[in-house]
Simulated scan of single mutants.
Amino acid sequence: MSRTLWFIAGAAASAFVVVKGRQYYRRLTPAGVADEIEHRVEETTQKTSEWLADFAETFSNARAAKKSELTALLTREERGQLE
């Protein structure tokens, strides 16, 4: 029983090492490195475009709020001169 258990444990460990070894080998080949770089570039591009969209929306809202605030402080004559 004990030998069978150790045999199965060894076979499972060997299979695990082979599978992980192939994954690491693939990641370290030039094609694997190129894939990783491409993935990171796409991820960075997506995050940057999301950040820029958020920034533009926040800036637009803040600008409109400040314009309303400043316009409210002006007298009617001053508002007429701006338009």
Score class of each variant (00 low, 15 high):
40 R>K: 15
22 R>N: 07
10 G>M: 01
40 R>F: 13
62 A>S: 06
21 G>I: 02
79 R>I: 03
59 F>L: 04
41 V>A: 06
60 S>C: 03
49 S>L: 14
67 K>Q: 08
2 S>M: 12
57 E>S: 04
12 A>N: 03
61 N>D: 08
14 S>Q: 07
18 V>C: 03
21 G>M: 10
53 A>L: 11
76 R>A: 06
73 L>A: 11
53 A>D: 08
68 S>R: 14
26 R>A: 12
13 A>M: 12
41 V>G: 00
41 V>W: 05
25 Y>P: 02
8 I>C: 01
52 L>P: 02
22 R>K: 09
31 A>M: 03
18 V>A: 07
46 Q>T: 12
11 A>T: 07
29 T>A: 02
43 E>L: 14
31 A>C: 03
74 L>M: 15
3 R>F: 15
74 L>V: 04
21 G>E: 04
68 S>N: 13
28 L>F: 12
78 E>C: 01
76 R>L: 05
48 T>C: 10
32 G>E: 04
26 R>I: 02
16 F>P: 02
19 V>G: 02
67 K>W: 10
69 E>Y: 02
47 K>L: 15
67 K>R: 12
38 E>H: 11
66 K>Y: 01
33 V>A: 03
51 W>D: 10
21 G>Y: 09
53 A>T: 13
16 F>K: 10
66 K>S: 01
44 T>N: 08
67 K>H: 11
81 Q>W: 05
6 W>H: 07
65 A>N: 05
10 G>K: 09
66 K>L: 03
3 R>W: 15
27 R>Y: 10
27 R>E: 14
37 I>T: 11
5 L>K: 12
54 D>K: 07
45 T>W: 13
15 A>I: 03
60 S>E: 12
57 E>K: 10
54 D>A: 04
70 L>Y: 05
11 A>W: 07
17 V>Q: 01
51 W>T: 13
53 A>Q: 12
41 V>N: 07
42 E>A: 13
64 A>N: 08
59 F>R: 08
10 G>S: 07
48 T>L: 15
61 N>I: 04
66 K>G: 00
36 E>A: 12
12 A>L: 08
30 P>K: 11
50 E>P: 06
28 L>V: 08
23 Q>G: 07
57 E>P: 00
3 R>S: 15
78 E>A: 11
63 R>I: 06
5 L>N: 04
60 S>I: 00
83 E>L: 14
51 W>S: 06
66 K>M: 02
50 E>W: 14
47 K>V: 13
9 A>I: 09
59 F>V: 02
29 T>L: 08
36 E>P: 00
62 A>V: 02
28 L>Q: 13
39 H>M: 09
71 T>E: 06
10 G>E: 05
75 T>Y: 10
20 K>Y: 13
6 W>N: 01
35 D>T: 08
49 S>H: 13
62 A>P: 01
56 A>R: 10
45 T>K: 15
49 S>W: 14
21 G>H: 05
3 R>K: 14
59 F>D: 01
61 N>W: 05
58 T>M: 09
79 R>V: 00
26 R>E: 11
44 T>K: 09
71 T>Q: 10
21 G>L: 10
61 N>P: 00
32 G>V: 05
47 K>H: 13
75 T>S: 15
64 A>T: 11
50 E>A: 12
61 N>R: 09
68 S>L: 08
69 E>R: 01
55 F>Q: 11
40 R>H: 09
54 D>F: 07
71 T>K: 02
74 L>N: 08
21 G>D: 04
52 L>V: 05
